[in-house]
Amino acid sequence: MLSKLFFGYFAVVLVTLSIVIITRKNPVHSVLWMLVMFFHIAGLYLFLNAEFLAAVQLILYAGAILVLFLFVIMMLNIKEEVTAKRFIGCWPAGAALGVLFVVMVASTLPVFQQGPPGPFSIEAIKSATHAKALGTLLYAEYLFPFEIASLILLIAIVGAVVLAKKGSNE
């Protein structure tokens, strides 16, 4: 009962905050509301016993990426942004597509079947600690996809450096 109450709280707040974020006139306020949303996502992870993910969510998304967002947005001319229209003309079409997607997902829900439980039950994760369980799995069983992901990130870094260098030569 209590766990359902918690999940209900997080679900309602997350959806509400998402709508709040896209409807703010001031982009800085949007980013600050997004910070509140990231906290709730971290709370949701904690509630699923994924403490490592919760911490990383806060360190990376709230602590680094969102600060960079804020950094860029603060450079904008806010006075112009506030008077600009928040949505472009064809937003009802986008909203209709969104509703269609929700209906599609909802219609497939009745045939949803839970998969067989894996070796990582809540008790197993609690005894091994979440960080250790995740690390062993990532570096042993899923090493190849993990390396691919890090290579993609490396390419992004190299690309950013190349773009920055190009600008400074001219």
Partner: peptide, 24 residues
């Protein structure tokens, strides 16, 4: 908690928001 060190890092990264918000 098991992730004590990460928790401290997460909290210290949030301190920057106060500064950015105040500055803006």
């Amino acid at each position: 908690i098991n992730i004590g060190l990460l928790f401290i890092l997460a909290m210290s990264s949030l301190g920057a928001y106060g500064i950015v918000m105040a500055g803006w």
